[in-house]
Design a protein around this nucleic acid. Structure first.
Length: 478
RNA sequence: CCGGGCUUAGCGAAGUUUGGUAUCGCGCUUGGUUUGGGACCAAGAGACCGUGGGUUCAAGUCCCGCAGCCCGGACCA
């Protein structure tokens, strides 16, 4: 049976989840290590996933009026230091350019860890009037943060991302836009990546340096650890004041605009791997899979088989799918295992017996289910099966998320639940940093978010017993 | 950044204790037989043993530094 068959060379996830993850990244040819710690090579198959993410997401950005720009990679130290909280947060992990050719530079330049300061410098130049607002910019680029530990996709020193930066005339409009972008991320994760998310707000401890509020989408991986998949920040006018960004409003008053920023990174690919993968390898969501359908001719030396398979391939390409046909000399078993490891959502098998009967066999990657279809119904059957793959993946991930959210009313109970089950532990929380630190110390969990969908679990904080009105999710995070 | 383990062909390993001709499996190349779940036979190619020093007649093996990888911890929007 397809489902039980194991791909050799990949460590079982039940044995060692971290090793399984590394094996999948390497064997599915997503990524390669370079000679510098934390700096990775994105191989064609891995980069293609990112390109598909970019294409789909970029269209969503443009629907809400966002324009793409490109900012410099270098930030002068003096510019970086203009906003106090911001520089304090990022200084420890900045990398610096100190030499230009053989000359020592007068001022050192930081390689961007994020580009708020560059955008602000530019906004100060180009914003004059309320008629210039809102200004909604985004850039696709890489950033550099000198992390102490690194893992493929989850924590790189250099990683690919997009960072959106917008300026608005009023606080209300900026706040609303912050939430709108978070919802775009959340919908993208669910509808495109089949990854269910929890939407909520970060605590002050976890929020972005310099932000007034940070909103987040949190996902649960197959090993029940949490992954922050995207964030959207409301800045108020803090940066605008620090960078002297002003505009003349309708009443001819000079005032500061209100700002947002929001980003997702190639960490999303890590999320895909750990949400959907299994012991046979990668399982890719159909909408971003570099190969959506692989056509495998069976007994291809027999007359007519190769032509028949080629015909199916061409029809699917014409129908708009990303298709590959493998007519190499490798055995059928080898090919099946290969494309399972690479997570191709749908396999089309086409052999002499199938062609005689005017049919082919579709096999879903996520659950191994085989469907025999008439050749004339190929296009509609593929569309239907890909939809079922997406839905099956989403349902499984949703079940994993929902079944591993536990309710606790004390630190001890939270610790117990985390140790036995993993997942999210939800409690009431008074809002004090002390209690957040205590939870980390006692139960090893950080706060993940204060969900928008609040529940009333009681009247007192699970950590200190004082009155509490907020419900919060805790978890062990990547 | 702290502690532990590791680095030998594209991949996975043996060889390191006791210094003395670099070994095995998979993969790769060529030819042939195969092909409905990782096929088989035959002949080949492929390694400055992570890197820089040192000890020695002689270093994959012993000593010192550095880099990278993995596992914990701390740190991390």
């Amino acid at each position: 049976m397809a489902k039980e068959k194991k791909v050799e060379q990949i460590t079982d996830m039940e044995v060692d989840f971290a090793q399984w993850f590394t094996d999948v990244c390497k064997k599915a040819q997503l990524i390669d290590y370079s000679s510098i710690k934390g700096v990775f090579v994105y191989r064609p198959y891995g980069y293609a996933i990112w390109e598909n993410i970019q294409n789909i997401m970029d269209k969503e950005f443009k629907k809400v009026g966002v324009e793409n720009v490109y900012m410099p990679m270098l930030i002068p130290e003096s510019l970086l230091q203009k906003e106090k909280d911001h520089v304090e947060g990022f200084a420890p992990e900045c990398a610096w350019v100190t030499m230009g050719g053989s000359e020592k530079l007068e001022e050192r330049y930081c390689i961007r860890p994020t580009s708020e300061t560059l955008f602000c410098e530019h906004f100060a130049q180009v914003i004059q009037s309320h008629r210039d607002l809102p200004m909604k910019y985004n850039q696709w680029c890489s950033v550099l943060r000198w992390e102490k530990t690194s893992r493929p996709f989850l924590r790189h020193r250099e990683f690919l991302w997009q960072e959106g930066h917008t300026m608005h005339a009023t606080a209300e409009e900026a706040k609303a836009f912050t939430e709108q972008m978070l919802n775009i991320y959340a919908d993208f994760c669910e509808n495109v990546l089949a990854m269910p998310v929890t939407r909520g707000q970060k605590t002050d401890k976890e929020k972005f340096n310099g932000a007034e509020a940070t909103y987040t989408i949190e996902c649960m991986m197959h090993d029940r650890k949490a992954l922050q998949a995207g964030t959207s920040h409301y800045f108020g006018d803090g940066f605008a004041k620090a960078f002297d960004i002003t505009f003349t409003d309708k009443n001819n008053q000079r005032v500061n605009p209100h700002q947002t920023s929001w980003g997702v990174s190639t960490r999303l690919i890590g999320g895909i791997i750990m949400t959907h993968g299994d012991n046979n390898g990668l399982v890719l969501p159909p909408k971003v899979a570099p190969i959506q359908v692989v056509v495998l001719p069976v007994a291809q030396h027999k007359p007519g088989v190769l032509e028949g398979a080629e015909n199916l391939k061409n029809r699917l390409i014409a129908a708009g799918y990303r298709v590959k046909m493998d007519d190499s000399d490798n055995s059928m078993g080898w090919k099946c295992a290969e494309y399972e490891m690479k997570g191709v959502p749908l396999r089309v098998e086409c052999g002499p017996r199938d062609l005689e009967n005017g049919q082919c066999v579709l096999v879903r990657r996520n659950d191994g289910v085989k469907t025999v279809v008439k050749l004339e119904e190929l296009e509609s059957a593929v569309a239907q099966q890909l939809e079922l793959v997406h839905q099956g993946m989403y349902d499984r991930a949703k079940k994993n998320l929902e079944e591993h959210i536990y309710e606790a009313h004390s630190l001890e109970e939270a610790k117990q639940l985390q140790e036995t089950n993993g997942g999210f532990v939800k409690t009431m929380w008074c809002g004090d940093l002390e209690c957040e630190l205590k939870m980390k110390e006692v139960a090893g969990m950080s706060s993940r978010c204060i969900p928008f969908a609040q529940e009333h679990l009681g009247d007192t904080c699970a950590c200190c017993g004082k009155p509490a009105s907020k419900m919060i999710y805790w978890g062990v995070a990547y």
